[in-house]
Design a binder for these strands. Structure first.
Lengths: 206, 206
DNA sequence: GAGCAACTTTGCAGATTCGGCAAGTTCCGC
DNA sequence: GCGGAACTTGCCGAATCTGCAAAGTTGCTC
């Protein structure tokens, strides 16, 4: 039943982490960032405020945690792609796989109207901008490693860093666009469009 | 003598802002982020702590302010480039112009050893990562506008967003690299290398 | 140059957050 | 089982953030 045989302790820790992050997101979407105190989040997850601080340094970190996990999943997915595959193709597939995990939100029910609206407000929150960006940057570092491995370049070489940075920027745009267009368009299309342009060398539209 | 005829009030406000940001950077580089209190920064700039809060929402914001200004200068520089110029060429020149303003640090004296070391520690500070990224993102938005203008596309179209995102990533890499290589290499080379790769469609090295 | 309006700075207070420290409790490996 | 390691928790002080109202400046008009 456990995803990994790492023992009860590890599993519980992981569960607490998820519960905290999830509670942080839900409360923020419902009430708005300023009306959520760490106290509330901790209560929702059934732990003390002090324990919250053991897991996350701030509200923002907790909120962004899941976003961060997904970004890292994409890096992991890239490592799974066959070695011969052209790089942009591999990256596109990895991104699709990462997003295929799906927002836990939409797991059962269809995307709720009020929920999407709350999400928009949340990601627009200025206080969280830095947090999202930071999570993206951390994931980029891992992505750069995967790219370096695949292309047999040094990890601190310009090439893998540049590819990772570009991919990070692309994912940001895709995510924002998915939220901004009114009937959220299928991720597949967005991802293929953006990575297609990148693979083609960003031709100037006309 | 005044840079703009906007009146004493505006000028003084601007000076205070610079002084605060500058004091924040200097103290952080010297002592490390955790050993600098807002109280210290305000004292250094000759204002009260409450006034500090009128200008910046946090230490991080103050530290990053100059970085932010420079990024916006690059976006402004892009608008100045001739309309016919190929886009990547224009961008490269804009970036060069932006960096040419020079770190006020290196204005007179050569880059000090201890200073560069402190800078490295500062940009490596986890608590500032988000702040830097956030500043970069804000500048990206302006950059996207400039690109949209130049290419006659909609500002919320994918193309300008993507170009801006890619440029932001590239500038991040250039900045980090400038700090990481031991004798800081000339900006020109770094910028030309990175933007050259982008203009060529990110060819895989071999 | 006197006076008024708008703006900026400042001190103060309350709410919140952040981290260290020292129990108390639970889990892992032997 | 048992000892040690890891995790949770409450408590506390330092630091930050923000609203509010008083005091000080600046800009503009008559």
């Amino acid at each position: 039943m456990d995803t990994d045989r790492a023992g009860l302790r590890e599993r519980k820790k992981h569960e607490t982490r998820i519960a905290l992050s999830w509670a942080a997101i839900r409360l923020t979407v419902e009430r708005g960032l300023d009306n959520v105190r760490i106290e509330d989040i901790a209560a929702e997850a059934g732990v003390s405020t002090r324990t919250f601080s053991n897991y996350f340094g701030s509200k923002g970190e907790a909120i962004v945690a899941r976003h961060h996990d997904r970004a890292r999943a994409i890096a992991a997915a890239l490592r799974e792609r066959p070695a011969g595959e052209p790089i942009w193709e591999a990256i596109t597939h990895a991104a699709l796989a990462g997003f295929a995990l799906g927002e836990p939100v939409t797991e059962g029910r269809p995307p709720d109207q009020a929920w999407v609206e709350g999400l928009r407000l949340m990601v627009a929150e200025p206080a969280l901008q830095g947090e999202f960006q930071k999570a993206g940057a951390a994931a980029e570092a891992e992505f750069a490693l995967a790219v370096a491995e695949r292309t047999s370049t040094d990890a601190d070489d310009v090439y893998p860093l540049l590819v990772a940075g570009v991919v990070g920027a692309a994912l940001n745009i895709v995510t924002r666009r998915w939220l901004s267009v009114d009937p959220p368009p299928p991720m597949d299309e967005l991802l293929r469009d953006v990575f297609g342009r990148l693979a083609a060398g960003l031709p100037e539209p006309r």
